[in-house]
Simulated scan of single mutants.
Amino acid sequence: MIPRVRRITAVCAMGAALTACGAAGGVRQAPARPTVSASPAASRPPVLAPGPGGLTPVFDHGPRTRGRTLALTFDADMTADQGPRAAAGEHFDNPGLIRALRALKVPATIFMTGRWADEYPAEARSLGHDPQFEVANHSYSHYAYTEKCYGLPALDPGEMREDVEKAYASLRNAGVPHALPYFRFPGGCYDQRALRALSGAGVTAVQWDVVSGDAFATDADAVTRQVLEGVKPGSVVAMHCTRSAAPTTEKVVRAVVPELRKRGYRFVKVSELIGETGKHR
């Protein structure tokens, strides 16, 4: 979950009830932009080459000079201990948002936790089979990969790769046939230790350059302004598809999509931006 910044004050629930926040804070390091490594199989998504010493590569936005393309990304957050809250009626999904994206014909990348896929397998399967979307990995339990990440429980380095693999297993079990080799750190928090722990997992870590501010927001107009003011060619916009913690997102999407199209922007998936980065660094 990404906190509100600039006009919108972040509010993060702590402890076991936390869905998660992150982005403009947290432990982030910015390695030099790595080169892309295209898969030999044309049908496979592009990935970035490992960083120095084989570190997991990090992608935060596409090229600024290849036209007005941008990617909307949505985190499907759910922690390992939120099952009772879901059983009591709390909504960690957002079908209205997905219907809006389909109606507007907006391709998008969904970063899904394994726990979310366990809770909503039919929705996970539907997204995984819809060519308008691509599904990527957001960890299994939405626990942090660093210390001091917005109150999230932290994983030990030895647990990190297993957590990523467990998430992919949940996506497969839910019926997602081709989860992409892209990973978003919970809270956006990472450091050299986390990048090293995931080395060899074959994933590209995907961050963002635009924080929508939809996490815990109640003012859709403020979130809309924040997105419209932050977007640049090649941007990756971080949003959420969790009704309980981001109730304004559907309204925001219905406002920003037509406005950005009027400004000449074309919506693409993260995989396309990564492919453009490799060809036109």
Rank of each mutant, 00 (worst) to 15 (best):
M1K: 02
I2H: 04
V5E: 14
A13H: 06
T19H: 07
A20V: 12
V27E: 15
P31R: 01
A32T: 10
T35S: 08
V36G: 13
V36H: 02
S37W: 02
A41W: 06
S43I: 02
R44A: 15
A49N: 11
G53Q: 10
L55M: 14
L55C: 04
L55Y: 03
F59Y: 05
T69L: 11
T69N: 06
L72I: 09
F74N: 01
M78S: 09
D81C: 05
L97C: 05
I98R: 01
R99S: 12
A100Q: 04
A108G: 13
I110V: 15
T113I: 09
R115M: 13
W116F: 15
D118F: 00
E119I: 00
Y120M: 00
S126N: 01
H129G: 13
D130V: 00
Q132D: 11
A136Y: 05
Y140P: 01
Y140Q: 08
Y140G: 02
A144H: 12
Y145W: 15
Y150R: 05
G151K: 08
P157T: 07
E159G: 13
R161Y: 03
E165G: 00
Y168Q: 02
R172K: 13
V176S: 00
V176R: 01
F183P: 06
G188C: 03
C189P: 09
R193H: 06
L198R: 02
S199G: 11
S199V: 04
A201H: 03
V206W: 05
V211D: 15
V211R: 06
S212T: 12
A217E: 13
A220M: 04
V223L: 12
P233T: 05
G234V: 05
S235R: 07
V236Q: 10
M239Y: 07
H240S: 15
C241Q: 15
K262C: 05
K262V: 12
G264S: 15
R266D: 14
K269M: 14
G275L: 07
